[in-house]
């Protein structure tokens, strides 16, 4: 037992160092392409750290969203940036040569270092024993309708946060529509490997999404992870050159994107009519309502993430 904990400790230290090294090289490597690749590896190593911290729900979300979709977004954007990757480091180096900049740099770095030290100092003043809200969650979990405590917090105890969070995602989509970039029009249809991969993987990803959604009430998983996997499937299809028909992109798309927030509004307001509080599910149907909410949220999240990737207002004839 002793050696096992020691081994684990060594593993944790190594993971931590690996994370720091990947972050450092991602933020300072000369090549932006390499930086993005390192960022994705960073995300994957983060998932490993989450597993070690007994947070499988986050590990899934991190792998799908943090590493997967953010990585895809970064890659796609990088491909469309006019500048080559090394220009920024050159500019940085020339800026550093300016007289006095050295001193400023030294000052800034030592301030940052002192800041880090103070954080670490403060950590030792935290109460040694911490249970947070674990007991509160444990007492009420029977009335929450789901058995996975993380899902219970996300969709029941703090469901209001999740509602606002769906709106954040929606706000990003509206914002992307405003900037109104041209869609990615690369001729990737001629890549048979990618095509085969997409046609093989997409059904699997849809199945994985459904599984994550279903298991989320009891085990690790839930709407965000499932939505992210669904989004990843969509991104894969988009990469393979698949473009949805315009008719599909119009109002059906818009209604589906709004499905999650709309379902939330509906479920939130309904209890008010019978004198209960906002988002207060009737105890016996809490489980069903949460599952319905999760299905709606999954579809919304998946589609929104896809649309964000497509970088375009994917709903009308405004753009070519």
């Amino acid at each position: 037992m002793e050696t096992l904990t020691e081994l684990q400790w060594i593993f944790d230290v190594l993971t931590g160092c690996g994370l720091l090294w990947l972050a450092w090289s991602c933020l300072s490597s000369r090549n932006l392409h390499r930086a993005v690749v390192q960022f994705v590896s960073f995300g994957l190593l983060m998932s490993l750290a989450w597993v070690r911290l007994e947070a499988p729900d986050i590990a899934l979300a991190e792998a799908a969203i943090g590493a997967g979709l953010t990585g895809a977004l970064l890659m796609a954007s990088l491909a469309r940036l006019p500048l080559s990757g090394s220009a920024d480091i050159r500019a940085l180096k020339s800026a550093e040569r300016i007289a006095g900049a050295r001193l400023l740099q030294l000052l800034r770095n030592s301030l940052l270092f002192a800041f880090a030290l103070f954080i670490i100092y403060a950590i030792f003043f935290l109460p040694p024993e911490f249970s947070g809200l674990r007991e509160e969650v444990a007492t009420e979990i029977e009335n929450a309708g789901v058995r996975n405590p993380v899902t219970a917090v996300l969709l029941n105890f703090r469901g209001y946060d999740t509602f606002l969070e769906l709106l954040v995602l929606l706000g990003a989509l509206f914002g992307v529509r405003i900037v109104g970039m041209q869609p990615v029009r690369t001729s990737m249809t001629s890549e048979p490997v990618l095509n085969i991969l997409a046609s093989l993987l997409t059904p699997i990803l849809i199945l994985v999404a459904a599984y994550l959604l279903w298991i989320g009430t009891d085990g690790a998983g839930g709407a965000f992870q499932a939505g992210a996997v669904l989004g990843a499937g969509g991104v894969l299809l988009l990469l393979a050159g698949w473009r949805p028909a315009r008719a599909l992109m119009a109002s059906p798309f818009r209604s589906l994107v709004l499905l999650g927030p709309l379902a939330f509004v509906f479920v939130a307001v309904l209890p008010l009519l019978s004198g209960r509080a906002l988002l207060q599910y009737p105890p016996d149907s809490a489980g069903t309502l949460i599952v319905l909410l999760e299905i709606a949220a999954t579809l919304s999240i998946g589609l929104t993430l896809c649309a964000l990737f497509l970088n375009v207002s994917a709903d009308d004839g405004e753009q070519p």
Binding site: R158, Y160, D161, L164, E165, L167, V168, G171, A172, F174, G175, I178, V179, G180
Partner: peptide, 30 residues
């Protein structure tokens, strides 16, 4: 939502929503 909130994390989400919407509106003219 922010002015009605007293929960620190809820305030964070509301602040982020405020910020994101405000930024997107700033870019409105393109």
């Amino acid at each position: 939502a922010l002015f009605l909130s007293r929960d620190l994390f809820n305030m964070y989400v509301a602040l982020e929503l405020t910020g994101l919407a405000a930024v997107a509106l700033t870019a409105l003219t393109g």
